[in-house]
Design a protein around this nucleic acid. Sequence first.
RNA 1: CGGGGCGUGGCGCAGUCUGGUAGCGCACUUGACUGGGGGUCAAGUGGUCACAGGUUCAAAUCCUGUCGUCCCGACCA
Length: 566
Amino acid sequence: MRTSQFLLSTLKETPADAEIVSHQLMLRAGMISKLAAGIYTWMPLGLRVLRKVEKIVREEMDAAGAQEVLMPAIQPAELWEESGRWAKFGPELLRLTDRHDRTFCFGPTHEEVITDMVRRNLRSYRQLPANFYQIQMKFRDETRPRFGVMRAREFLMKDAYSFHLDADSLADTYERMRQAYCAIFDRTGLTYRMVEADTGSIGGRASHEFHVLADSGEDAIAFSNDSDYAANVEMATSLISDAQLDAPEQEIQRVATPGKRAIGEVAEFLGLPLDKVLKTLLVKGAESPVVALLLRGDHELNEIKADKLPELASPFEMATEEEVRVAAGCTPGSVGPVELTVPILADHAALQMADFVCGANSDDEHLTGVNWQRDLPLATGVDLRKVVAGDASPDGKGILNIARGIEVGHIFQLGETYSQALGATCLDEQGKDRVLTMGCYGIGVSRVVAAAIEQHHDDRGIVWPQALAPFEIALVPINMRRSELVRETTEKLYADLMAAGYDVLLDDRKERPGVMFADMDLIGIPQRLVIGERGLAEGNVEYKQRSAESSKDIPLVEVMERLTAG
RNA sequence: CGGGGCGUGGCGCAGUCUGGUAGCGCACUUGACUGGGGGUCAAGUGGUCACAGGUUCAAAUCCUGUCGUCCCGACCA
């Protein structure tokens, strides 16, 4: 491709409404163009990258035995009523009415459609297991679309659905998908982690998320420094430490803490570290009106874990100020477990505190020097908190680090939720009708593009991994219009590289070198060859990797082999 | 959903408070010079000032409403 025939719509200035670097760079590089909130046109440069991701995904899905289909973006409401999701889905579901007053939605996902396709077309266990995928635009009417294509309303997604007669078959395909996902993300050249994930309301046994690591990621991931263990922070279990409980040294004492409500204020006021202060949260209970949750002051409640406790109301909800007043007789800031008459659940770490501070169940007062067993009975220990960096890895190997990640893939075992609701069945070997069990596997294709930039950029622009780059090699001739030699050499190189199968971008614009360099850097072409008279006089061209600090001269005659060598 | 900001040429912004013929930088066009990291000079193109209504002799500017867009928040005691 020649720049003279390619829309290179680069900007020097950063558009004001782009918050994160991938969004800024995608706009500046001219990859995307905004049409409305969360809705973007993929321009030629951006589309090339999107297609690279798609190609990798498609190849690996095919290799893993999945069959490609393409389902409608517009889906009839009836189908969603059958699955029960027409009512369940909120305003995120974009609903439409056609001229005949029939109701539709723009598909945010395709479980219903695929299950319908399967129930109409699959009859026999001989056709199973079957795994279908598509790469398609979805629409979710997010409350607050942001970060460009990272969290867009319209986005390109690969979704796959597998169908099985039994759980073993599902587990087989699930494992195959897990491996296919690893192959896919390996090939992108991105640094990622596969993590254990919350199966959420959908249920099912196994669930893994794939996260591209980047500081701007919206999710926190905990992973061991000494094993393969990795989990969403929401999911990571905290190990019960076997450390001995320190013996009490202080007497229990009531102290005034006027106006100190937040745990940090109390600790600061008393001149104590956060981990000496016990945090008491009152939440709505399942059977009693409120339940107290105890955490060490420096730990945070993991609501996902709390939500799963049978003692608590589901969904998880904090008690109101009035409920706190009724149960503890004080404002939320002064609640403590001593002589509290509601059910108490304590995080394991909270049970190992000694001589700690807690609320006194009286406004503006706290207790110091509190100790388990002596001053109050040992509470029931549960896993309540979010893990923090430095915690022991739950598999017993190494300690946990925490990194930010961008969720780009999610696989999970769906079970019979949709096949049951829609009546997707097949005959088994005995000729009996059996409800199919399903797996579901997604990849946010357009999000991968943004995630790649979040992970690979510098102050000059994008630094594409070779596998995702819109072009692999940039040819930058210096003074092509004045020098016959430069022009001929460049044209020959261009033809040779194209013939060798490279995606090459020849910058044949009538621009000054600085402009060409800046543009090639901004759009992130991983390799660059500069052809100038100066170098050619020595028989050299200048080679530079986008990620490298400096360039080096290489003999023109060796260019082809040097590039092939990487 | 709640709160806040912003809508002025393709992009970034000034002008709004204090009403009086719409400006700057970048980009774009043409020419000259220049020619290895966003160059210089000159001449140009391009704007119903988001939209609707109102006040006024006069509205980008004041008032009312609508729409768009961005940010923050949705309760860790």
